[in-house]
Design a protein around this nucleic acid. Structure first.
Lengths: 114, 114
DNA sequence: CAATTATACATCGGAATCTTATGTATATGC
DNA sequence: GCATATACATAAGATTCCGATGTATAATTG
């Protein structure tokens, strides 16, 4: 089962920031593979969503890049800037909080007894 | 603290279905108030998002409505159709599953040690 | 060794979803 | 009487993602 795409919306940035908090640097394709492997194929980051988001985060000063040649092929490594580290912590704890709230909402009985 | 809007994206439909699974019927404004109260103001459903979504779910045969006059004012009650009950269970368990997966992703160390 | 699959980047049109603003109207509280 | 709460609705615009497409190199496999 793969989650409907609408659920992934809004979490992509935070997932990227989380990966780069734990790892000194990663490249795009590697991120898709890692997330796929960590979630047992439940979350598949599509390239059409990932690369534009990486570019946006870089333009925002949250990520920085260094390109390396692997044979004849370019590989673009991303890492957090100092600003990105701060932003990352914020986003991650916001998401953690959100997950708890949603879990509570979904798990409880929302019926109102008057 | 109110969650950044991007996080709410994708969960609205499921929240509505969850509310209507627990309650025989609810009207739009009531949903905004209930969610606000249940989440301690952390999730605020905006009307501009809620009403079009309710209309879409109705057009999809997932919700049905009955209008009532409260004084001179119309109040539009929504409830789940049989199809909506099935869809609701699916969406709710998908979201619960997604929340677990995301919690795992956020909570663990995603570093790869080779 | 040819063909397929995996790796690795990128962009773009279109779809879906939400925000902000605006509009209308009645009811309530002070 | 005036502000706030209740209650619906729509519409333009922004954001964000998907699916498709493109390019190219590397590795695997029959």
């Amino acid at each position: 089962m793969i989650y409907s795409s609408e659920l992934i919306k809004g979490t992509l940035k935070t997932i990227i920031l989380k990966l780069l908090r734990d790892n000194p640097r990663m490249y795009g394709y590697e991120m898709t593979q890692r997330v796929k492997e960590l979630t047992g194929n439940k979350i598949q980051l599509t390239e059409g969503a990932l690369y534009p988001t990486l570019h946006a985060l870089e333009a925002d000063g949250i990520l920085q890049t260094e390109s390396e040649f692997i044979g004849k092929r370019v590989r673009k490594y991303y890492s957090l800037t100092p600003k990105g580290k701060t932003k990352g912590e914020e986003k991650i704890s916001e998401l953690a909080d959100f997950l708890e709230t949603m879990k509570f909402l979904i798990g409880m009985n929302t019926q109102l007894i008057n």
